[in-house]
Design a protein around this nucleic acid. Structure first.
Lengths: 334, 334
DNA sequence: CTGAAAGCGCTTACAG
DNA sequence: CTGAAAGCGCTTACAG
């Protein structure tokens, strides 16, 4: 026989209401009664049914997270940060992916209306921002992770792409590089525009304006890193550094450059972006702008749970600073 | 006002029971009545509350998955496979990580006893197999993904490590390599032992026994790949191939070898294991044993859901065959 | 074919 | 400080 609250109550000689109060730490319970109830709970190994609590209380004790894919390292990092705080606060974490197009949206909507979770974290699957905004407007607590430069009108946590790109430029200037090749992401992303803008500022300030011909558009994939680097070589572009908008493209470019006989960092210094554990295992080790990806997950989850616990969300975005990690792709060790 | 089953019933002029039957497609309902109810459901956008259904039906409509970490590419792939089938069958997916040691176990146990999910998928966090077995024995439907060679007595889906390693050896023999350096994982894992055993079979059969001195023990990390490759060079070991127990170590070894002036594949042919999208982006592209990782997730989820739907689990393990992908690290293109 | 009623396991005013 | 009772939103025998 499953041990329910009724069983505990009977055994302790009190009502279910009293057991409930003890379990939830309600004030104004006789300490002796409480102790007796606790003893029975202990003895029987009673744990409240999440379902029943949820139904009675009108909440589920779990939060959802919507992600575009589970196989991207960036997403994995965020998810781990989220899971750490969600779990440590005793909530469940329900994962939804948008891997299957419109079907995904339909099924997600079903879970949503089924009230399967109390609040939602989202790493925006491309093109769903309007729907998300709608959910938020309809009263679902939502926190967006990484705004991709859209700066929506609901709470989000992001990172300072501009500052990160600026740090990359300053580093390259400091080691005497003046003709950086930029392998960017797609400019339709706000983060890409921010990185482009931030990167050129220090050069501008130093009186070394960037050559527009040295900016090539990639799409964050390894293949595009290879293609753009080859293109730069084929066109005979003169450059003494590469600034790639992510680590993957930076790693790809390094392979092409070494293949072509360019020494790294002597001939070409290379800087990446993200600094994820899995993408900086390159030869040589990659200097990169560090995104606090995991921390973003933690902060977003914390903000959402605080909100569910009754603290009001300010609505102000939370922007975490980037870091900068210098490795051998820009500075030869001695 | 939230639209509940009672609201729908009132509007359609029937009882809640009838609405319930229509929603759940119970047999023996007048088609006209059903149509009327459906129209109202449509009109009001009614969706059953997952909580209430769960409570009444004694199940939650979601499955849990226990993972050691969310930041390993291997786990991400499995998770995606799992999510695809769990979502497509209308279940929720609750994720639990074991990132925080004993605390993780405690919190997981709470969710478990809270009956927050109907069945459990697990990628074994190291050292938890006994607990998992206990849960299974206590009646929780469990499917283990990747047995790591433990071959437990409850259902699991794995892959044929032995066959995969054999394919690697056959390929190397076919291209004329006879002195492969093996960079293995830790032999305490059953999968590692299976790979070692499988790899030597074709060599044995070909009358080209392996030199025991050429097996170096790594631990699946990039760092250990670097270290073991350097060690092999430092010791002056003679080898014309490398078989690494995962892609990451293979990639690391390739960097070291090229640095040392060895040409790949001319001087040394390199074979990895896993063939995950994220770990084979090496220079040159890596030949590797392909593990059907995503498929393992799909199959495991399918088996668990089938079981929850009343089909009985055979209890027999499901072993998926590995594949073998030839790329330029072993065969120069022409 | 359909409905009234009990029940799933809790929480929470309302009384006392 | 504690209990009886209603209610959360469904499902499911049991009648008819």
């Amino acid at each position: 026989m499953p041990v329910t609250m009724a069983v505990v109550a009977a055994r302790a000689g009190v009502s279910k209401a009293t057991v409930s109060r003890v379990v939830n730490g309600a004030p104004g319970i006789d300490e002796l009664t409480a102790a007796r109830v606790r003893a029975v709970i202990q003895e029987l190994g009673y744990v409240p049914s999440a379902r029943a609590v949820g139904l009675a209380r009108g909440r589920t004790g779990s939060v959802g997270i919507l992600v575009p894919s589970l196989t991207w390292p960036w997403v994995g990092e965020v998810l781990q940060g989220v899971a750490d705080v969600v779990e440590s606060r005793g909530f469940g974490l329900l994962v939804f992916t948008f891997n299957q197009g419109p079907d995904s949206m339909r099924r997600f909507a079903a879970q949503l209306s089924g009230k399967a979770f109390d609040g939602l974290l989202v790493i925006e699957p491309s093109g769903t921002l309007d729907k998300i905004a709608e959910l938020h407007d309809n009263g679902l607590p939502v926190v967006l992770i990484d705004d991709r430069g859209h700066e929506p009108r609901f709470p989000w946590v992001g990172t300072s792409n501009r500052m990160g790109a600026r740090a990359a430029a300053e580093h390259l200037l400091a080691i005497g590089r003046t003709r950086p090749l930029i392998i960017s992401g797609e400019p339709r992303f706000g983060c890409v525009r921010a990185r482009l803008a931030g990167f050129q500022e220090p050069f501008q300030a130093a009186g070394v304006p960037l050559d527009p011909a040295l900016t090539l558009e990639g799409d964050f994939t390894y293949a595009s890193g290879i293609a753009r680097a080859r293109e730069a070589l084929a066109r005979g572009l003169a450059f003494d550094a590469v600034f790639a908008h992510n680590d993957v493209m930076a790693g790809a470019a390094m392979g092409v450059l070494r293949e072509a006989g360019r020494r790294i960092p002597d001939d070409v210094a290379v800087v990446g972006f993200d600094d994820l554990p899995w993408t900086t295992q390159t030869e040589p080790p990659l200097t990169a702008v560090h995104q606090p990806v995991r921390r973003m997950g933690e902060v977003a989850a914390g903000a959402l749970l605080d909100h569910l616990d009754g603290k009001r969300l300010t609505g102000d975005p939370i922007v975490l600073p980037t870091g900068f990690t210098v490795r051998e792709s820009t500075v030869r060790p001695r």
